[in-house]
Design a protein around this nucleic acid. Structure first.
Lengths: 357, 357
DNA sequence: GTTAGCACTCAAAGCCCTTGAGTGCTAACC
DNA sequence: GGTTAGCACTCAAGGGCTTTGAGTGCTAAC
């Protein structure tokens, strides 16, 4: 059933008020906020209907009304007004990046801090999934005589380190040889599970390096198949800035929930590549987050690799602000993580030709 | 003035009780805990004297006594009994390390989690300072045509990545050459500020690579001079497990304090290489931590590189348990971070000879 | 359909009293 | 002289009671 315009306006006023005060909203307050064009008695009648329709809850008889999850759903779907961030506000992220951040992990941490700072909610930033990206460079760096660091650089500028260890000692020169061979095979190739199988045949031609090759292939496979890729959680302390967590027990259980990676990834993982995804309270599959809302956005690095950023907060969330910030941050992340990749696009192609010819 | 044995025993009983209950301790409770060998009235007399000597505080007339910072100082200095961790307890750290942790940062994060889990306090783990360690390997890995990753591996097995960017484009082959030259010069050398100046002369002989050499030298310098090295804070959520932070305002201010790296390093940085350092409440220079105690321990990686681990908690802290855990963790860290280095000691020497001959 | 008026509800806050843990003091005891 | 029992005193915490006031639903009039 469609709501009348007036009901919508009242509902929006209630939600706006509740979002900013966290207190049940009474009919008189609404009348004032709506410019006294209608009396509080009329609003009471309307609220009564809104309550029976499931949009409002009443904590107790003599309290005002609280918007239900259903009301928030309608709010974000159609009532909410979106504004753009003003230019000064858009600088919030700049303070967090510094010139040394080539490694993905530091960028992600910086992004998490920036999002938390800007929204005052807990932020989650997932690393970009290495899907259909091109390997630009692979280098094995010796750590000990039987272990090395596999440094993987993609065309979108993402750097990943992974250690490997070997059964028998290997010298630095040997590793260098292996690196060269690895580059011949993988550089310029698209990372996908199928490709790795094809290259496995090539490996068999190589004498004595098969063990290492297999291991490196496994690492690449891990990286590109890691659906539950690593993520960074920021600003957990900000939980206490919201009256929902004035109760220490609630705060404690929420904080320890946020300490558990498994719990968080169950809430964040959105396979569908929607630009924004808003999950409100009871809509969360995970029972423990039923008092929370989760807003996530998908960012792209170089048109192929995708990652997720998001915010976890109370249902009474400043959805408009959060979406603005996430919207700005996903572009910002795409730029910071992807810029290096774009800059060398030509260069990569040249290398491809050299290696393929 | 020296305390009588009985006063010491009473004081110890009070502190032990207060540590476990967080409640003011009354004379009757103490009499029970001491086996009723003396009456509560006698204990009251003794407590009265202890209070006038500054070892006890009384929140209000009709409450029990609370040990002062001075009392805790005496407690950790002479009253406290130290027990060893039982073998099952010593396994707590093992669950946190996994075989892939060659990179220092992941090890430190794991250590922070382990310490927090074992002590139920907030933990701080500082990266080992690269002081007087030997460079085992330097590798430049191309990221873009004008930037690269400097991967530094030391003889104690510590790996550090730092990005550099160049003014003019450089090919992968050129970077490989530079890496080889860097290794010729630095591999096997001790990292110290003086040495870097000496090597600067050598660099001048090298044509065309001077810019890169200068930058890498600067990075090495940064790493070895970084007194305020990076650190990891873990288990901040555990703050709320202690009644000291039942007040949300206190919890909030403490949590945001722990979010500030600058504040934490002001409390943790201990230049003196003491094995353990305990700072109790008002002994903290930083006014904001005057209600906290900080226990730090110094761990060594390969007999040269030193790092710091520590715990931040309420003054009413289980100092014995904390010291046990830190003691175990510093050995554990030394082992995990240093094992790879030891394993290849011979190998390193061989390389040295090759490169020096 | 809207509004004013009124009776009703109920959490929150203030107040008072009781309770009980704990103290200090004193006088008796060993 | 140190130790102890006894007793008066203190005061935070908690229970119960009342007041307050924000907010509602209903009804009758506009």
């Amino acid at each position: 059933m469609e709501l009348s315009e007036r009901k919508k306006k009242i509902l929006k006023t209630i939600i706006d008020d509740y979002i900013s005060t966290a207190m049940p909203v009474g009919s008189k307050t609404i009348a004032e906020h709506m410019g006294m064009s209608i009396s509080s008695a009329t609003i009471r009648n309307e609220m009564n209907e809104l309550e029976s329709m499931g949009y409002l809850d009443q904590p107790h008889t003599s309290a005002g009304r609280i918007p239900s999850d259903k009301a928030f759903r309608m709010y974000v779907d159609s009532l909410m007004e979106m504004a753009q961030l003003t230019p000064p506000e858009m600088n919030f992220a700049c303070d967090y990046y510094d010139e040394r951040m080539v490694q993905t992990e530091s960028v992600l941490r910086a992004a998490a801090s920036a999002i938390s700072e800007a929204t005052d909610y807990v932020s989650v930033v997932m690393a970009p999934r290495l899907n259909r990206v091109t390997v630009r460079h692979i280098q094995l760096v010796p750590i000990t005589s039987t272990s090395a660091l596999v440094v993987l650089v993609t065309d979108v500028g993402i750097v990943r380190d992974t250690p490997v260890s070997f059964n028998s000692p290997i010298t630095a020169d040997q590793l260098d040889d292996v690196s060269k061979n690895l580059n011949k095979i993988f550089a310029g190739r698209v990372l996908s599970a199928d490709d790795l199988d094809i290259h496995r045949e090539i490996m068999q031609e190589l004498q004595g390096q098969r063990e290492i090759f297999t291991q490196v292939t496994e690492i690449l496979r891990d990286h590109l198949l890691s659906a539950d890729s690593s993520f960074t959680v920021g600003g957990t302390a900000r939980l206490l800035n919201h009256p929902e967590y004035d109760d220490v027990d609630k705060a404690r259980s929420m904080l320890s929930l946020l300490d558990s990676n498994r719990q968080i990834s169950s809430v964040i993982n959105s396979d569908d590549g929607m630009e924004f995804k808003i999950t409100i309270g009871s809509e969360n599959q995970n029972e423990q987050f039923k008092d929370c809302s989760v807003v996530t956005a998908t960012y792209k690095v170089g048109d192929r690799s995708e990652g997720t950023i998001g915010v976890i907060g109370p249902v009474r969330m400043k959805y408009d602000k959060v979406i603005q910030v996430l919207s700005y941050m996903k572009d910002s992340l795409a730029e910071v993580l992807g810029s290096s990749g774009k800059r060398i696009d030509n260069n990569v192609k040249e290398n491809d030709h050299e290696q393929e010819g």
